[in-house]
Design a binder for these strands. Sequence first.
DNA 1: TTTTTTTAACGATTTATATCATATTTTTCT
DNA 2: AGAAAAATATGATATAAATCGTTAAAAAAA
Lengths: 230, 230
Amino acid sequence: MKKVSIIEDTDTCFLCKNCLKEWIPTILAHKKNYKVKKGESIFKEGDAVKGIFFVNSGIVKVHKRWGAEKELILRFASEGMIFGHRALGGDGIYTISATAVQAGIISFVDTDFFETTLKVNADFNYNLLMFLIHDLRVSEQKTRNVAHMPVKGRVADALISLKNQFGLTTDGFINIELSRQDLASFSGATYETVFRVINEMVQEKLLKLSGKSISIINHDKLNKLTEEAA
Amino acid sequence: MKKVSIIEDTDTCFLCKNCLKEWIPTILAHKKNYKVKKGESIFKEGDAVKGIFFVNSGIVKVHKRWGAEKELILRFASEGMIFGHRALGGDGIYTISATAVQAGIISFVDTDFFETTLKVNADFNYNLLMFLIHDLRVSEQKTRNVAHMPVKGRVADALISLKNQFGLTTDGFINIELSRQDLASFSGATYETVFRVINEMVQEKLLKLSGKSISIINHDKLNKLTEEAA
DNA sequence: TTTTTTTAACGATTTATATCATATTTTTCT
DNA sequence: AGAAAAATATGATATAAATCGTTAAAAAAA
């Protein structure tokens, strides 16, 4: 993780967007920017919490391990999104990891400065609150899905939410390059099972593949898979 | 759900505790109290959101359905805790249900008043933020557990967290009366599987039963079940 | 109290999904 | 460019946990 100087874009930065105009110079003075490579770790479960991160460009996965092998991707943070904030008010140890899945630039502010920002900017506090409530709803939905929805439904759900977050390329593919292993981890299943399920979906003409890229052909049927018990 | 008048205890109420002293009379003027019976529904997934609830006494389960039969209990709200707040800033429809598992009294304030309270009380806003971050950590932990931890570990985890939240009775049993079905829903598994797993644990002298009540005998071994892959 | 309903107990069977094994292709590194 | 490593593809097998089926016990309602 290499520190870099960039021309700040105060429109995409989560902090700048939500704070008082008068506070922005202070933010810029405190913010550090880092370049991350694909696959590079930003922090790991168990590391000491030093501050809060924001995605400037690229994509970061927020994930959690179980044992040595199994991991679950909780969410992807993309341009403008905050991450690492779940560590606030905790015991100062990350309970999750963050790793770049697409190279980019991330910003960092230390915990003290972040807490000051919260106190000085009531609106930011309120917006962050709403953001967290949304996160919480998504998280609880995911918990339920993993608990009761079959893998096929979870993969369908994962693909739909990836499409919603990252949009489509000009030729209609979901605009994120994700390894099958990451897609499996995001769906909360093993690589092999996800592989099989995706094959089924291609057979059933719900999806189209092109290398790693996936295109949703039959959105309705995919949606139905995420609804009630089959 | 019957409206009742109670003598307000401004120390247990989540709102009163975290707001400015000057704001308390306003809160008391807006707060409505309801008596709920065991098993009574407070709100259901799909209902319109009208406001935010607090537990005055009793225990409320926050749960989510999947299909007709399966449910997952996300958490239990006990004395002083807020619930229903995940609906803020959403589309005005509850994505979860809340049901009393132990009779008690719950308080309610409407959304408008709650949002005003947030704006008027910066500290409350900050405390709620910290509370939500904690909720989020717990929720993500649960998601990972349901995804990768075997049922036995999840039941162990459920029992430990129930013990932490509700404490012990004088004779050492976890101080909550929960149906086996609710324990199963909280663990994210079926009744039968949880039943078998609990039997195993009794055999292995990790637990002791007395009717519905459960006592943890070997806390260390139970804890180990929640750690790495067996 | 008696009846009805709900919750609990527990064995048998099935099924979804993980695990294992191995070949092949693609990416990354030197 | 060539070697090493990682990611992908796919079948066979194992197993955890769900589903089904039935009986028994406890609560709740009449």
